[in-house]
């Protein structure tokens, strides 16, 4: 199949950028979308042009490295699928696909389709952990956890930190990412002790990074490759009010 691509090219953070047209004549429905870009890059290199830079690593939908807007949707048209697992059979011969990087002030552009998501790391560092210095931990079964709670915590813990929620959110809000971690940890008995400081600090950090606020568009849940529910955002707000009440 032949695929037409319009891809955002930008040499560096300060350089001017724009959409450039490409054609991949020898695409194949079994290719992943990233393999399509690989094929295109081989063409470009042979022609002496700069290949298109895009982040990727596991290509299994788990590391969260990949992440681009494909046809206007974060990670492309297939539900619950990171773009590295998106395959060309989701497209038709002759399609034109527009490819752009995540757009958010808190995700400064590095090059082409690559952005800097370190803001996520700082949000986690602000409180997305349980303080448990190595050693000293009690027996793993000392504290039973109701299966439902453990399963729900796992639902939220599956976040791969890809940033699609931010990219798709009309407000460029990081609420789903932040809430998923807050909910994961607060649902477990080990996490409740630090729950109050955690929610306040992580939320403050999220604001400080320049992400937008959440207006409940729920677009984030729709594009999340792990289908994390905005119920986590409601959960975060309950946790927050709890924290405020007990601190005032």
């Amino acid at each position: 199949m032949t695929i037409h691509l319009r891809i955002w090219r930008q040499a560096g953070p300060e350089a001017p950028g724009g959409l450039v047209d490409y054609i991949v004549p020898d695409a194949n429905e079994h290719m992943s979308f990233l393999e399509l870009l690989d094929v295109l890059n081989e063409q470009l290199i042979k022609k002496g042009e700069d290949p298109i830079e895009f982040d990727n690593d596991c290509r299994e939908g788990i590391c969260g490295s990949c992440g681009i807007m494909v046809g206007g949707t974060a990670h492309g048209p297939q539900r619950r699928t990171a773009v590295c697992q998106l395959h060309m059979r989701s497209f038709k011969d002759g399609d034109t696909i527009i490819v752009e990087p995540w757009r958010a002030a808190a995700f400064p552009l590095v090059k082409d389709l690559v952005v800097d998501r370190s803001a996520f790391d700082r949000i986690i560092a602000a409180g997305g952990y349980i303080s448990a210095t190595t050693g000293g931990a009690p027996d793993a079964n000392a504290l039973p956890v109701a299966k439902e709670k453990a399963d729900e915590a796992m639902d939220y813990a599956t976040c791969i930190g890809c940033g699609a929620c931010v990219a798709a959110c009309p407000n460029a809000s990081a609420s789903l990412f932040t809430a998923a971690k807050i909910a994961h940890l607060a649902l477990l008995p080990q996490g409740v002790l630090e729950a109050q400081g955690r929610v306040i600090n992580m939320v403050d950090q999220m604001a400080a990074e320049g992400f937008g606020d959440c207006s409940n568009h729920a677009e984030c849940e729709a594009v999340c490759p792990k289908g994390i529910s905005i119920a986590s955002i409601a959960f975060m707000r309950r946790e927050y009010m709890k924290a405020i009440r007990s601190s005032s």
Partner: peptide, 29 residues
């Protein structure tokens, strides 16, 4: 909230498509 949203994405997308349900994004939202 609106002003912060404007600042949170200074460069927009040339095409943007909602992924549909469970998204609640709509004209009114």
């Amino acid at each position: 909230i609106y002003r912060r949203k404007r600042r949170a994405r200074t460069i927009g997308y040339s095409t943007y498509k909602s992924a549909g349900r469970p998204s609640r994004q709509s004209l009114s939202s």
